[in-house]
Amino acid sequence: MLQGKTYSKEEKSGWEAAGEGITRKITGHNTQMMMVKVKFEKGAIGHVHDHFHTQSSYVASGKFKITIDGKFEILEAGDTFFVQPNLKHGAECMEAGVLIDVFAPVREDFI
């Protein structure tokens, strides 16, 4: 979805590669915030990384081992996690699923 659009229709937006077994779709953004849908195949790994953005994520489906600042939790559909800026974090997909990530400010590197 392009900046300034109000609605994002699932069937009208495409997925882009974001790593082995991982695809993502930007569902909306402006300069202050961005929402991204991230689809993981079982076994896919979102490698440990950090960024200056605040991140809040919702597990829409699947099962994930989420590591934040060296500690991990197993999260399933309906669970959430929050990442403060500059904390190292990553995800390992235990059952295929989807995360909904919200970033503030916008992830310019995704556009």
Rank of each mutant, 00 (worst) to 15 (best):
T23N: 11
T23F: 07
R24E: 02
K25D: 02
I26P: 04
T27L: 14
T27V: 13
T27R: 06
T27I: 15
H29R: 04
N30P: 05
N30G: 11
T31A: 13
M33F: 14
M33W: 10
M35A: 09
V36A: 04
V38G: 03
K42L: 07
A44S: 12
G46Y: 03
H47R: 09
H47M: 08
H47D: 09
H47T: 10
V48D: 12
H49D: 05
H49E: 13
H49S: 07
H49A: 07
D50R: 13
D50C: 11
D50N: 15
H51G: 03
H51S: 07
H51V: 11
H53W: 08
H53C: 06
T54F: 02
T54R: 02
Q55N: 05
S57R: 02
Y58N: 02
V59A: 01
A60L: 14
A60W: 13
S61G: 08
S61I: 09
K63L: 14
K63R: 15
F64R: 08
K65P: 02
K65V: 10
K65M: 13
T67F: 11
I68E: 03
D69K: 09
G70S: 13
K71P: 08
K71N: 15
F72Y: 15
E73I: 00
E73S: 14
L75M: 14
E76M: 12
A77D: 08
A77H: 08
A77I: 09
D79Y: 12
T80L: 00
F81Q: 02
F82T: 03
P85Q: 12
P85V: 12
L87R: 11
K88Q: 15
G90Q: 12
A91R: 03
C93R: 01
M94E: 12
M94A: 01
E95Y: 00
A96D: 05
A96G: 13
A96M: 05
A96F: 03
G97R: 04
G97Q: 07
V98K: 03
V98T: 14
L99H: 06
L99R: 06
I100T: 03
I100S: 03
D101F: 03
D101Q: 02
V102P: 02
F103A: 05
A104R: 08
P105G: 08
P105K: 09
P105C: 10
R107F: 08
E108M: 09
E108T: 15
